[in-house]
Amino acid sequence: MTLHFLKRDFRDFLLYWIILLILTIIALLAGMIGLSMLVWAYFMFPSMAEGYILGSPWRTQHQMSRHYLLSLPISHKRLFVTQQIRILVFWMPLLILMSCVPFTILTSVEFGLFYYFAVFVSIAFWMHSQIWSALEMESISTYLPKGYRIWAYIKLFGVLFGTMAILATGWVNYLLDNRVSGWAEFSQRGFLSLIPLLPAEIVFTCVFVLLIVWVPYNARRWCVTL
């Protein structure tokens, strides 16, 4: 059944995949500048598909709505797993690109293994913040009374920026670590001087623990209409 969804997604997003392929070729020919642009393009790519896959009705009526998905004879748990796989497919370009990084900058094998853990945890964390945001936005636009909406928006942006801050702290700290790339000479002023206080190991382990709680929470919310 998952394959049925994936095939359909591939057909629906074929044009986007072709554009991404063309961008990749151009970026690879452009060298380092092109590569940094490519990371950004790969990071933005899943956001085009997430709303469509999650079926939140506040975006547009011309997509497969959550009501339709939930009415199908598929176990809701399995359906949620399928949904995550569908989204993960759009993260694959970034995952593949990021998987190549250790061969270019890392100096320690031990820390290289941790790198893959951090990549996996970061993508899962970002993905679930997007799922949570879509559900939150759905409840804001459907039944939340006026007085509650402003707080819901504050919570929404708080979680979004919180997610970005946590992941940025983890990654900057990780990449500045002397055991990784010898980038320690990099000037650490202002905000950056605080980063060593939260080692990457602690940040990403906390994110992993947070995910253990967040994934079932998102699953429960997604599998019922709000």
Binding site: P57, Q61, H62, M64, H67, S71, P73, K77
Partner: peptide
């Protein structure tokens, strides 16, 4: 209790059921 097999025996029609426009 999410009796998903039973949903195969149910037809559901709603204004909230949307289909991709393309």
């Amino acid at each position: 209790t999410d009796p998903w097999r039973a949903r195969a025996r149910i037809g559901y029609l709603s204004e909230k059921v949307d289909i991709p426009g393309d």
